[in-house]
Design a protein around this nucleic acid. Structure first.
Lengths: 133, 133
DNA sequence: CTGCATCCTACCAGATACTG
DNA sequence: CAGTATCTGGTAGGATGCAG
């Protein structure tokens, strides 16, 4: 019996690589902030707590499913705090935790790079596309 | 005739919001670097040009489809330069452009945050999960 | 060696409707 | 008001085979 076929070997390599990626802190972080809504929520909560319905209006494009889901994930990650005020009707506020707030400088850095260089990217794209016709 | 039904209004709001997002530089950037392979390629190319096959080996888990696709996108964005050396067999090298290299500090910042705070995230997750049983 | 085209699957986001 | 539950369609991404 042969050691391993090529596909088998690649599969196991892939497995090990995935395992490695799963433990890579930088990738774990990227997977989180890269989420479409996480970055927007980080921004929306940057200058103070917001109610669920406020967030829902601010991020006009989000479905409540994704809003809830994203907030839950961020809460689980310790990025936001959820406060329920028992009343009728119920009131729920979300706020950044210190950990969540410590992410803001990074978002700012990304924003800064983007605003400085995005036109270069656009030009590169235009040039690239031009060469293809 | 009524102005708009609720679903219609939400749909058009969503449309406008999507349009806004599409023009948001920071989001455009995030969409790019958040890509699983882009960040890894940025790293792999950080200290010099690499051949296609080298990259393929370094990023053990990538399918050649994704490798090629990702490299193409990065080339289009002006982040990497592609150099073909006509020979038999063909030789293709990829290198970071200055624009691509200017992204490295951001990746470093992300990595730094991740390494500093990831254990807090892990703890938060553990605490959160513990509360649910 | 490098890369494209095709097919195929698994996952995820959105719509919708219902609950405390 | 602030969610939860379920269904479904689109799409990202892997496998495979062929080509320059």
């Amino acid at each position: 019996m042969a050691t391993q076929t090529a596909p088998q070997r690649r599969a196991s390599e892939r497995e090990r690589f995935d395992a490695y990626l799963a433990t890579c802190p930088a990738r774990k972080l990227l997977d989180r902030i890269s989420d479409k809504w996480v970055s927007l929520l980080l921004n929306a909560l940057a200058d103070g707590p917001r109610r669920y319905s406020e967030l829902s209006r601010t991020l006009a494009g989000v479905s409540q499913k994704m809003l809830t889901q994203t907030l839950r994930t961020m809460e689980r990650d310790g990025l936001v705090a959820r406060t329920v005020t028992p009343a009728v009707p119920v009131r729920v506020d979300y706020a950044l935790t210190p950990l969540g707030a410590s992410l803001l400088p990074i978002m700012t850095a990304i924003k800064a790079w983007a605003e400085t260089h995005i036109h270069e990217v656009d030009e590169a794209q235009a040039a690239y596309d031009a060469g293809r016709f």
